[in-house]
Design a protein around this nucleic acid. Sequence first.
DNA 1: ATGGCGCAAACGTTGCGA
Length: 257
Amino acid sequence: MRLATWNVNSLNVRLPQVLQWLAENPVDVLALQELKLDQDKFPQAEIEAAGYRAVWYGQKTYNGVALLARAPLSLEDAVAGIPGYDDPQRRVIAATVNGVRVIGAYCVNGESVESDKYAYKLEWYARLHDYLAAELGQHPDTVLMGDFNIAPDDRDVYDPVAWEGKVLCSRPERDAFAGLLGLGLADAFRLFNQDDKQYSWWDYRAAMFRRNLGLRIDHILLSAPLSARATGCVIDKAPRKWERPSDHAPVVVTLAD
DNA sequence: ATGGCGCAAACGTTGCGA
């Protein structure tokens, strides 16, 4: 079973790339973030024509998440948002695919550590932590994947001195990420790759991608039984080189049956 | 570091978010 996550930065703009990527990489599950389209604007017909089923939680202009599953796999028991958390920003969607509880998340960016949005980010992460704790209790096979907007370690940052204490790298954010791992989740990428300079996001500005100046902020976290099944995890930089790319690259994990 | 992008409001250009 292969699962992937990709922040597409507008599905309206990136739908052709999503379809092309799926044609080349027919993963079983794809989590999408930053759809930036309203609930009734999701391109369901095009996704289904490509052989995928979908559940989505859309929002005009900002945020928005979806889960795609390759037919005949189905998405069961879908839940939008974090239950019990009245968050107007649509950032989370979950469903069960092939016995695996899949949670796709577009985590809060936070803007800067001085911002009100940063306080919201930390509160939001506390809610996500409690949600994951509950889901893990119900589903031993759980994966949480998406854009975490956190670089967990200095080796995930192109210039850790310049970024020290900054949003995406600050101690409280890294503690929030570690708190998720403390639930028994594992960073799938780091099960297989200990190299630095392995990024999933590059700012559009200043030719950052060409110079490989980025951050690793898109992650796939696996529960212990799924970690035991994992056979590989890679960041696919290819679509970042396409015309009019998303600023994020897909991350893909492979699980043994 | 600051060479970019998507979107809304409004139709040229600006502001916001990320």
